[in-house]
Design a protein around this nucleic acid. Structure first.
Length: 277
DNA sequence: AAACATTCCTGCACGC
DNA sequence: TGCGTGCAGGAATGTT
């Protein structure tokens, strides 16, 4: 489930464990991701030192000496693990260890992605914000630019379902399918509601719970259903906090009515027909 | 065996 | 008409 909380968790762990380390080599075993990994990548990063690790939306940004940044997106099924002796790969299949960076302390950063919907590229830091990937992104959901006034204004007149708008990365960057369902449950708004018909009070609740859900998920290092692992190889622990996602037919934690599932914008969505209007 | 955590692209409908 | 925008649908892929 690489949505924002998963990527932010990776960032925090890597910022502690990989910062200051020098990259001794990079190996691309399988470069056919969403876009092909450039052949120049190993040469561009070898010998560089990891200065810091950032994030924009669901993109992880590994900042290197020399002004280069490795931009990583985990797609649907990707993970980036920091491995040393004794590392337990958990559910990760070594056949999908596509890219590997060897660090100067003998540890390795390994990008694993079964479905290969992810992305990895090297960009000059000065050009980061003008890349195709980042330039159209909306505000960070945990930043001050994402507020009720903004969401109110951007939803007016829109016929699309509120859940689709919330997941539109140009509207707000980082909310994916799982958290969208959870946010709307807490905000008591049905995922199918036309965005333009969501009231002021509801818009305010959506913003409030977006922040609350994402913060809580970051605190639990994300959500794991199947193979997602954080950079230490551990599953995320937000899965046990999910109130509606993947719980069709089970009782609503608030009122015990059976949770329903519905397809919105080709993505499965879950809601309580009683609590959510 | 149908479903799926992501993004990107196409094409249609609509309004100015 | 032509252009921009909004929106829906499909595709990429391997696993369970």
């Amino acid at each position: 489930m690489p949505e924002l909380p998963e990527v932010e968790s990776l960032r925090r762990i890597l910022a502690r464990s990989a910062a200051g380390r020098r990259m001794m080599s990079a190996t691309v075993r399988e470069g056919r991701l969403r876009r092909a990994v450039s052949r120049d990548l190993p040469a561009a990063v070898t010998g560089r030192t990891v200065q810091s690790v950032g994030r924009r939306a669901k993109y992880l940004l590994i900042e290197l000496s020399g002004g280069q940044v490795i931009m990583v997106h985990l797609g649907m099924s990707g993970s980036l693990t920091h491995r040393r002796d004794g590392f337990d790969p958990g559910a990760l299949d070594p056949r999908h260890d596509h890219v590997e960076f060897a660090l100067d302390d003998g540890s390795r950063l390994v990008y694993n992605d079964p479905r290969r919907f992810g992305l990895m590229k090297v960009v000059a830091r000065s050009h980061l914000d003008s890349t195709e990937e980042l330039k159209g992104l909306g505000p960070e959901p945990l930043g001050s630019d994402f507020n009720a006034a903004y969401l109110w204004q951007i939803t007016r007149g829109r016929a699309a379902a509120i859940k689709n708008v919330l997941m539109d990365q140009r509207v707000v960057a980082g909310v994916g399918n799982i958290y969208a369902s959870e946010i709307l449950f807490r905000a008591q708004v049905r995922p199918t509601r036309p965005a333009g018909k969501v009231t002021r009070a509801e818009v305010a609740r959506i913003v409030e719970h977006t922040v609350q859900v994402l913060r809580e998920a970051i605190g639990r290092r994300g959500t794991t259903f199947r193979s997602y692992r954080d950079s230490r190889g551990q599953p995320g622990r937000f899965a046990e906090r999910l109130r509606v996602y993947d719980r069709a037919g089970k009782p609503c934690p608030a009122c015990t009515t059976a949770i329903r599932s519905v397809i919105v914008g080709q993505r499965s969505s879950f809601y309580c027909p009683r609590c959510q209007k």
